[in-house]
């Protein structure tokens, strides 16, 4: 288990950066409104950052191992499909995770 001081520092770093992002802009509203670059990034960053985060969470998936890539691909496809079909975030997350947990647990028990 990681050292408790490290965990506390990590939490405080994330909290400080988050608070900064939320509080500092109130002190610079005029330049914020005028910046075209910020507006450009604001429109494009979220989708890309989410794609990178999803890829990051899957970085240890082994493409050559069917018990690793199989459950991931099926659960990923189901999550995307349900989200495009119903647009209900909780339903999509629940469906994808349930399928992944069942497949991965069976694979772990038999392998």
């Amino acid at each position: 288990m990681p050292d408790q001081w490290y965990i506390l520092s990590g939490i405080l770093v994330a909290a400080a950066v988050t608070w900064g992002l939320r509080a500092i802009p109130f002190a610079m509203l005029a330049p914020l409104r005028e910046s075209e670059l910020l507006a450009y990034l604001e429109q494009r960053m979220p989708v890309g950052i989410m794609v990178i985060l999803a890829a990051y969470t899957l970085r240890d998936t082994d493409p050559a191992l069917i018990t690793s890539v199989g459950p991931t691909a099926l659960a990923l496809g189901l999550t995307i499909g349900v989200q495009l079909w119903r647009g209900n975030m909780l339903l999509s997350i629940f469906a994808g995770t349930a399928v992944y947990v069942i497949l991965a647990s069976v694979a772990a028990a038999s392998g």
Binding site: V47, I80, I93
Partner: peptide, 28 residues
């Protein structure tokens, strides 16, 4: 095992919702 897939699913779903803002594929 595998409950952490919820995190992947969360980011995928947030990504799809963010995609709907511009519906443009080159950025993702």
């Amino acid at each position: 095992v595998g409950l952490d897939f919820a995190v992947t699913a969360l980011f995928v779903v947030l990504g799809i919702e963010a995609y709907k803002v511009r519906r443009s594929l080159p950025v993702p």
